[in-house]
Every structure is written in C-alpha cells, then in structure tokens.
Amino acid sequence: MSVHIDITGLRPERVAVVPSPLAELGMALHALSEPAHHPGLQGWVTGVTARLDPHLADRMCEADFLWRTTFSDLFLPCAGLPDRGTLPGGTLAEELDLLDKLSDEQFVDAALEFTCTPGYGSGGPTALSDPEVRRRTLDLAAARGPQQLRFSERLLADPPAIRAWLRQFLRDCDEAFLAEAWSRLRHQLAADARHKTDLLRHKGMAEALAAVSSAITLDEEAARITVDKLGRDDGTATGESGGLLLVPTSLGWPHLMVLYRHGWQPVLHYPVGSPELAAPPNLERLALRMTALSHPVRMRMCRYLARSAYTTSELAQTHGMTAPEISRHLAVLKKAGLVTTRRRGRYVLHQLDVAVVARLGSEFLEGILR
C-alpha cells in the first residue's frame, strides 16, 4: 500500500523545493469541486463560489475529471520536459508556457491519465499512437459518461484545440480567484520551500523528507523513497541525470500527491499550513485496526471494554467463551493499539482506548485522501 521512488544516482543538487502557481490552481479547482475533502477551506470555497461567473462555472464542469477525482499531471508540466530537471515557473503565465512545451502525446496521455487509460507510469503506447489503446480509452471514457466521452473524442481528434481551451480556461480562473489567493499564499509557500531547502543542505534528505510528511521515509541503503499512500504501482526511477522536485501546497491539504509518470521527473506535492491534530497511523496500522474491529466477537467485547475495565476471566464468563479464546481476541485488539491494560493487585484489567477508536473515522478519511 505504498508508492516507491527509486533515487539511485540522484545527486543532492538535483533535489529542489519550489512552489508552483499552476499546481496551486489545480488544487484550488479540486477544492471547489470537492469541498468535503477540504473542511478547512469551506469559507474560501463559499466566497469564491458565490462570486463566480456562471459561464466560468459551467466551463469548470467540462473537464473536471482533471482535478475532481485526482490531481492531473498537467498541473506540473515542468516535470515532463526532456531534461527532467526543469523547475516550476514563478508566475502562472510562465507555467502555461511550460505546459505548451509538452508534446501532444504527453499532453493527451496526462489529460486522460487516471480515468481513461488502462495504466499509469508504464511508458507504453498512447491513445494517439496506438489504435487499440485509443479504442480502449474511448470505451473507458464512455463508461464515465457522455461528457467525458465528448471531451476525450475532442482531445484525441484535435489536441491543439484542447490545449488552447485549457490555457484560456486557466487564465480565466487566475483572474477570477487564483491571483488573489496566490498573492496571500505564495509568501507562506516560499518560506516553507526555503525551510525545506535549508534542511536538505544542512541536515540531509532524510530529515527534509520527514519534515515534509510523516508518511514519507527514505531508505538510503536501498536508494528508495517510500510514501505511505494508496497507489496503483511503484514509482519510476529518476536515474543519474534526473531530479526530484518537492512542491508545497496550501490549498491542497491534506492531500499528499506523488507524480511518478514514466519519463517524467518525480514530484512530491505536499501540504503545508494545516497542522494535524495528531500524527495519523500508517496505512498498515489503520488496516490492522479496522480488521481487528470487524470481528463480531471483538466488537461485542469492545462494547463492554468501552464502558469499564474487565479481566480476562470476566470477559470469558460474560461471552460464554474460554479464557484462552478471549486472550487471543484481546491480543488482536492490543496489537492494533485499541486496548490498554493495567494491573490492580493480582488482576490484569483491559479497557478500550476510546480516543483511538474515535479517531478512526477521520484517520481512515485522511488515509484514503492522502
């Protein structure tokens, strides 16, 4: 349940931390389309939506699969340029120029990436070059609905026209709401980028990545970065000539995005500015906890353990089971971190950690949205 990035041969000077106005626009569009993913932005979303031009709001629906379901790689075009070390532009106009430098195949493949293509990061034939992939792409688009099918057909028939449409749409979004938001956020993002860059230079990559997110770890011996995140497959290697880009986002919290498309520079797009209430468990621990609670006997035990502390013998008598059977169920709950124990004289008392169980709902949501 993790995404891996191979950093074999990666030189320290090829690691950069840079904010991106185009990436922040992508996250703004996502927040406007899926406000439930961003409870901390409800005020901003409400304000933008209230003053949004109806025509622009309609246009936001034409290709919302580029930002509603996930975060399209089109919002980080610098990663797709041949040198695999290009940095984001300082302005939206500069980044739109980088978007224009992607080849038609890159543009189409990225635009259809998650919803209409069979794979991601494989580097195989694309819908523009292979008739069979094209047929499969349109079949998948049709399954998503007539709107996505129409967009996909237009994209495959005339990529330059869709490029022009997207460029104008993004410029209109900038004028409508991003420019004002970016004027406030860019200083915070730039400060975070400077902080992470200082950590890279003076403390090393492991400490810098740990500061980016507790979900990111570095195995220096294996030359591999692991991101505790639900993903389809492993990230691609950077190679000696490649780079690694870290892009901070404010509007994107709590999403931790990983770009690992074949032939592109890997990117970690990480949230800043919204501190977590508590460090969430990794996905393996989360799955362990949910599995522990799914057993009907353990659920009945939790009903009692949530109200008071019980000994093993008391639980066995209450549930009509043997003490060893109860002990085995308690062991599962303890391993998942759901039950605490304390000694009272010669008795060992077990009790449910209600605070941990109460967090499971939000932790599950954060885990799958990460």
Rank of each mutant, 00 (worst) to 15 (best):
residue 65 F to P: 04
residue 39 P to S: 02
residue 55 H to V: 13
residue 39 P to K: 00
residue 35 P to L: 03
residue 70 T to H: 14
residue 68 R to F: 07
residue 51 R to T: 13
residue 39 P to A: 07
residue 33 S to P: 03
residue 33 S to N: 07
residue 67 W to K: 00
residue 56 L to D: 01
residue 80 G to P: 11
residue 57 A to I: 04
residue 76 L to G: 03
residue 33 S to T: 10
residue 65 F to H: 10
residue 34 E to R: 14
residue 33 S to K: 11
residue 79 A to P: 08
residue 34 E to S: 06
residue 56 L to E: 05
residue 49 T to S: 14
residue 80 G to C: 04
residue 77 P to V: 11
residue 46 T to D: 04
residue 38 H to P: 00
residue 60 M to V: 04
residue 69 T to N: 11
residue 62 E to Q: 15
residue 43 G to M: 08
residue 63 A to F: 13
residue 38 H to T: 05
residue 58 D to T: 10
residue 31 A to E: 00
residue 76 L to S: 10
residue 53 D to K: 11
residue 42 Q to C: 04
residue 57 A to Y: 00
residue 52 L to M: 14
residue 61 C to V: 13
residue 76 L to R: 14
residue 71 F to T: 04
residue 33 S to F: 06
residue 31 A to Q: 02
residue 43 G to C: 01
residue 77 P to K: 11
residue 69 T to I: 11
residue 59 R to C: 09
residue 50 A to C: 05
residue 67 W to R: 08
residue 52 L to S: 00
residue 61 C to A: 15
residue 53 D to E: 13
residue 77 P to M: 09
residue 52 L to T: 05
residue 64 D to G: 01
residue 70 T to N: 08
residue 46 T to P: 04
residue 49 T to F: 01
residue 33 S to L: 08
residue 51 R to D: 00
residue 78 C to H: 15
residue 35 P to F: 03
residue 46 T to F: 02
residue 53 D to H: 11
residue 53 D to G: 02
residue 43 G to F: 01
residue 66 L to R: 06
residue 52 L to V: 02
residue 43 G to W: 02
residue 41 L to C: 03
residue 78 C to Y: 13
residue 65 F to V: 10
residue 55 H to A: 13
residue 51 R to G: 07
residue 71 F to N: 07
residue 57 A to K: 13
residue 69 T to E: 09
residue 49 T to K: 12
residue 73 D to W: 12
residue 73 D to Y: 10
residue 49 T to M: 10
residue 53 D to Q: 13
residue 83 D to M: 03
residue 33 S to V: 05
residue 68 R to K: 14
residue 30 H to P: 00
residue 46 T to H: 07
residue 79 A to T: 15
residue 48 V to N: 02
residue 34 E to D: 09
residue 65 F to M: 01
residue 39 P to Y: 03
residue 80 G to M: 11
residue 60 M to G: 14
residue 42 Q to S: 01
residue 45 V to C: 08
residue 62 E to W: 14
residue 76 L to I: 15
residue 55 H to K: 12
residue 48 V to G: 01
residue 48 V to L: 00
residue 39 P to M: 04
residue 55 H to C: 05
residue 50 A to T: 09
residue 49 T to L: 10
residue 79 A to G: 10
residue 73 D to K: 07
residue 59 R to S: 07
residue 74 L to H: 04
residue 31 A to N: 03
residue 35 P to Q: 03
residue 61 C to K: 15
residue 83 D to L: 11
residue 55 H to G: 03
residue 45 V to S: 05
residue 54 P to T: 12
residue 60 M to H: 12
residue 70 T to M: 09
residue 57 A to F: 00
residue 76 L to V: 15
residue 32 L to F: 07
residue 46 T to K: 12
residue 41 L to A: 01
residue 38 H to A: 01
residue 48 V to T: 01
residue 38 H to M: 08
residue 63 A to N: 09
residue 47 G to H: 10
residue 36 A to L: 10
residue 83 D to A: 12
